[in-house]
Design a binder for these strands. Structure first.
Length: 423
RNA sequence: GGAGAGGUGGCAGAGCGGUUGAAUGCACUGGUCUUGAAAACCAGCAAGGGUUUGUAGCCCUUCGAGGGUUCGAAUCCCUCCCUCUCCGCCA
């Protein structure tokens, strides 16, 4: 959510910024609502103030044994006016809130302008695209040939976009997760968390998946409004919601492995085959909670931590800054890390590292006390995959394949796998 | 699933339906004292919002959430959520 004060003071500036995303903000409608709100609210508080003072007078009169009939009468008149006022005011407030929750975050100046992903800006690349002296296969063919991947059975058991891994391929995914968690906790000083995989709607409003993107989520059919998490970002970030965090503990660095569940509505036809786009996938998620001054640095460090996973695995990748047309709703700046996939002969997203500024914090009331001013301020939130385990599995399988269809194990995973090759 | 207890400020913990935004203690901040520290003593110390040039003043809201009763609700009633204890079941 954007700062409502800024929204009022510099609405045109904000509208122009949001226009870079291609978002049309009907500022006139909002300004009109706010004008009405102002009028009604002043009237509302004025009425309440009068009623409060009359009630106080009644209290005093009663203690003296005086007659209170007239006072009560005028108080009742105020109440009649008040209830009319309140129904109008509440209607306006809820309209305004609906608009405010639907406004995306403003973009940093450094976000490259553009309509879509073709305008993303290449920041850096690492490693050379893997060279083969044979025609490399994709992970589906490799997995099938090894008898370790069964997408047909998965779709029979559940439906499309699910997978069954077995044997050493299942172990490889577990090894990747274990390796990533160890790297982040031991070398990058993150604290590991185990968190719920099911969250309530309020938490999703906090991290800004709701109310706008409900169709991307799996909702659980029960009397409570429960959802499967689309990313561990939701429970991890909400750990800081509705409380005032001690400033001396910032920045906080959190990591968790969780499965992630996404409905992938609207992605029909994209990545329909294989493990790239699944309804359920494993991910190691990095979250940092920082002060406003520290948040840019936090984004850079978090991104480098995600990159280190790929460096250790010796997987070639590039880092791009998402353009104004490709960046997510709540993000003010995003780096995508894209890993080289020989099977597709493309770089594909394996991590997305975003700075949200106070956008999420404001929604979930995640605050800290600024020791300088003594005032409560919103924290800044940063998160990124470190990295998506399902896609890392694809990357390892495709980049480490050998002519005979076997898969070499990256050095970094050998201790976890206990074997040097999958065949 | 059955029975009971409870949700109040950063924490602990009071609170007859009427100047209670809320006693008290701890924590915190400032001061006095001290060579310094501790102790003691004094003072301050919730948040959000509106108005405003204003970190001044004034006003509104907030005692788990939402409704209701009332001129007036932290206090009474209803619904929901959560926590705790005991019993049952269970990975």
């Amino acid at each position: 959510m954007l700062d409502p004060k800024k929204l009022r003071q510099s609405i045109d500036e904000i509208a122009n910024n949001l226009a870079r995303r291609g978002f049309k903000f009907d500022t006139k409608a909002y300004v009109n609502l706010n004008d009405d709100r102002k009028k009604l609210q002043i009237e509302n508080e004025d009425l309440k103030s009068k009623r409060n003072s009359i009630s106080r007078d009644i209290g005093m009169a009663k203690s003296k044994g005086d007659d209170t009939g007239d006072l009560m009468k005028s108080s009742e008149e105020i109440n009649t006016a008040l209830s009319e006022n309140e129904s109008q005011l509440n209607e306006i407030l809820s309209k305004m809130r609906e608009i405010e929750l639907g406004l995306p975050n403003t973009l940093m100046k450094t976000v490259p302008d553009g309509k879509d992903e073709t305008s993303n800006e290449l920041i850096r690349s690492w490693g050379e695209k893997t060279v083969f002296d044979f025609e490399p296969k994709d992970h589906i063919e490799l997995g099938n040939n090894l008898g370790l991947l069964d997408l047909d059975k998965a779709s029979e058991i559940s439906g499309s976009r699910f997978s069954v891994l077995n044997g050493k391929l299942a172990t490889l995914q577990r090894a990747l997760i274990q390796f990533m968690l160890d790297l982040h906790t031991n070398k990058h000083a993150y604290e590991e968390f185990y968190v719920p995989y099911i969250v309530n709607g309020q938490s999703l409003v906090g991290t800004s998946q709701l109310p706008k993107f409900e169709s991307d989520l799996f909702k659980i059919d029960s009397d409570k409004s429960y959802y499967l998490i689309p990313t561990a970002e939701v429970p991890l970030t909400n750990l800081f919601g509705n409380k005032i965090t001690d400033a001396s503990t910032l920045p906080r660095k959190l990591v968790a492995h969780t499965p992630c569940f996404r409905s992938e509505a609207g992605s029909y036809g994209q990545d329909t085959k294989g493990l790239i786009r699944q309804h359920q996938f494993e991910k190691v998620e990095l979250v940092q909670i920082a002060t406003p001054n520290g948040s840019l640095e936090a984004l850079e460090s978090l991104t480098s931590h995600a990159e280190n996973v790929l460096k250790e695995l010796k997987l070639p990748y590039q880092v791009v800054a998402l353009s104004s047309g490709d960046i997510g709703f709540g993000s003010t700046f995003t780096y995508d890390i894209e890993v080289w996939l020989p099977g597709q002969k493309k770089y594909r997203e394996i991590s997305s590292c975003s700075l949200f500024g106070d956008f999420q914090a404001r929604r979930m009331k995640a605050r800290y006390k600024d020791p300088e001013t003594g005032k409560n301020e919103f924290v800044h939130t940063i998160n990124g995959s470190g990295v998506a385990a399902g896609r890392a599995l694809v990357a390892v399988v495709e980049n480490y394949q050998q002519k005979d269809g076997s898969i070499k194990i990256p050095d970094a995973l050998k201790d976890y796998m206990k074997v040097d090759v999958i065949n």
